[in-house]
Nucleic acid binder design. Structure first.
Length: 576
RNA sequence: GCGCUCGUAGCUCAGUGGAUUAGAGUACUUGGCUUCGAACCAAGGGGUCGCAAGUUCGAAUCUUGCCGGGCGUACCA
């Protein structure tokens, strides 16, 4: 499509002596293959620019400008028709010669067709998922993990060297509340009473229920003090490298259960992290840095705590070190940023989280900007909406009423078992990943178990199935990867829309990478698959006189679909 | 209260300056498997794009106000 853009840009330059950014759009099929509104955008500029009207062009009416451009475009072999419509839109219909050329390009370089180089040679760190040890994973973790992974894959596709990292709170008030609950259940600091023999999922369920107990206890002044003491003791475990006391054994045992549980889950959803940064590891550096920068007046004391005053920047004021002298999440995040910076010397750092902490993150990044501006400038917070259960039930791990991440996967497996008689992990994950990624990042998403689990219609398995059918044809034909078409093929009413849609892939990839928007890929692939399935219903390949052309189309389709599914982390199966 | 954000078909969502009838899926009604895989295809009904005003040749899309939901708003994360 670069070629088309260059042609139009040159025509505009020759006619009006103006450089302009031409934008192509994909109109409804009845209008043409491509459209541009360049005449409408030029109309204003030409009217205000007398220098432009001393040439052959007559400024003013968009429709007249469009006619002039169209007249020139008609001379090019890449178009079979160029028409002006409406207020001054130019609709173009691509020639079969051009389409043949594009198809051959797809076949020759299936993995590079349309691949952008936005992040070429860049080191990029993506931080996401960020579950807290001592808690169970809820559906929100499933969502943020899948989104973070898809964004990572988009950056990788665009040439970036991506390092996926994970941050989690193994120290802090939530841990203290949980340990309080555990100790209460154990009847004191008795690690020998821990339910070591339970399966990992049930052990974590037991730990999580202790967190709910601790939260309730925190509302009572007496137990609140006990929990605050436990919080300090947990930090001391790290300061003193303490492992053998009963209290320490309880902490370390439950902590290791958490990481075992996380690893199981990430294996199940096929997301791999290069590194965990537990808060205990970033807290000392964060604490030290905040203390140092307090001397330089970046932070200041207020009511016994160390805060960053965000007011001058229109942000909130937040506590970085509490009046107990302990680092809050803010200081740990400062420590994390500096640690990532030291570890990777990245070009870009993305932090992917729910939108609920957007204002919080602005304060943290603004504070870092005061003493490490380059780090702050390279850091970007990407947020997505919150995942809610249908029926507007608010989920909170504090209260213990929520759907666990693994529950969702179980539900999809059960659905498949009923519908298909067997469980296929590729389509289970395909269904889940697609159901989550097809939504634009931003708005909250309502998770409806019954329909999200569905494998019909606009779903991951629909695309996987379509891919498997395409591969099945190629297997049957014995498709040779060296195939290509001679110039000037003609395409019929089902072949042509498929090929035209395939040529849109580079534009889609560019948009998806520029905006880090996986849903753009989903929308496109679904439209593409619909067109392919229509082609499939109406076009016989094996044994047909048009088998040569059609085989090439099927091969190009299968490759693009596989690449697109790959960006989403969805397997494109040969059979299913 | 203030800030951010969202409001499109019964439900879940695309579309976020451009084209007469605003698109999908799902659910509902109906048709299609002796032919490369029916997790498919075809047809039908279903919408004051929250409300109102403004900007524009043109608004679901931009601005303002209002209504409604969500999130945030100092020692939780």
């Amino acid at each position: 499509m670069e070629r088309i853009l260059e042609i139009i840009t040159k025509v505009v330059k020759d006619l009006f002596d103006l450089n302009t950014g031409v934008v192509l759009s994909r109109p409804e099929a009845k209008f043409g293959d491509l459209a541009t509104n360049v005449a409408l955008t030029l109309a204003g500029r030409l009217g205000k620019n007398p220098a432009a009207s001393d040439g052959k062009a007559v400024a003013g009416r968009p429709r007249e400008i469009a006619e002039q451009i169209a007249a020139e475009l008609k001379n090019h072999d890449d178009f079979t028709s160029v028409e002006v419509a409406g207020a001054g839109f130019i609709n173009m219909r691509l020639s079969d010669a051009y389409l043949t050329h594009e198809l051959n390009t797809m076949l020759a370089t299936p993995n590079d067709y349309g691949r952008p180089e936005t992040y070429k040679n860049q080191i990029v760190v993506t931080e996401f998922s960020d579950p807290n040890p001592f808690k169970v994973l809820h559906v929100g973790h499933l969502y943020t993990s899948i989104v973070g992974d898809a964004i990572s894959r988009l950056i990788e596709l665009a040439g970036g060297e991506v390092h996926r990292v994970n941050f989690g709170g193994d120290v802090g008030m939530h841990v203290a509340k949980c340990i309080w609950g555990i100790i209460t259940k154990l009847g004191g600091e008795n690690p020998e009473n821990l339910p070591t023999d339970l399966p990992i999922g049930e052990r974590m369920q037991w730990v999580a229920s202790s967190y709910v107990d601790g939260n309730k206890a925190y509302e009572n002044d007496e137990t609140k003090t006990e929990i605050a003491d436990i919080n300090k003791r947990i930090y001391q475990l790290f300061d003193m490298d303490e492992h053998d006391t009963p209290f320490a054994r309880i902490y370390w045992t439950c902590r290791s259960w958490s990481y075992e549980y996380f690893d199981n889950f990430y294996d199940r959803i096929d997301v791999q992290f290069e590194k965990y940064y537990p808060e205990s590891a970033t807290a000392p550096l964060g604490l030290k840095t905040v203390q140092e920068q307090t001397k330089k007046s970046v932070f200041k004391e207020s009511n016994g705590a160390i805060i960053f005053d965000g007011e001058p920047y229109g942000l909130h004021t937040r506590v970085f070190i509490n009046s107990e002298g302990l680092p809050t999440y803010e200081a740990k995040d400062v420590g994390l940023s500096l640690t990532k910076w030291q570890d990777y010397h990245f070009d870009k750092s993305f932090i992917i989280t729910g939108v609920d902490i957007i204002d919080y993150m602005k304060v943290v990044i603004k504070s870092i900007e005061q003493f490490e501006p380059e780090l702050a400038a390279r850091t970007e917070h990407i947020t997505h909406g919150m995942m809610k259960l249908a029926g507007a039930v608010k989920m909170a791990s504090r209260l213990g009423n929520f759907l666990k991440a693994e529950d969702v996967l179980d539900m999809v497996e059960n659905y498949q078992k009923e519908a298909q008689g067997a469980i296929n992990q590729d389509t289970v994950l395909g269904a889940v990943r697609y159901a989550l990624l097809k939504n634009r990042l931003g708005p909250d998403i309502i998770f409806e178990p019954e329909t999200s689990v569905n494998a019909q219609g606009n779903s991951g398995p629909y695309l996987q199935y379509s891919h498997a059918r395409a591969r099945s044809i190629l297997r049957k034909i014995g498709f040779d990867k060296q195939n290509s078409l001679s110039e000037n093929q003609d395409f019929d009413e089902y072949e042509r829309p498929l090929l035209v849609k395939l040529t849109e892939w580079p534009e889609i990839l560019t948009t998806a990478v520029d905006e880090l928007a996986p849903h753009v890929i989903c929308t496109y692939m679904y439209e593409l698959a619909q067109i392919f399935n229509r082609f499939y219903e109406n076009s016989r390949v094996e044994g047909d006189p048009r088998a040569g052309i059609r085989t090439c189309l099927v091969a190009a389709y299968a490759d693009i679909l596989r690449n697109g599914l790959g960006v989403l982390g969805i397997v494109a199966p040969e059979k299913m």
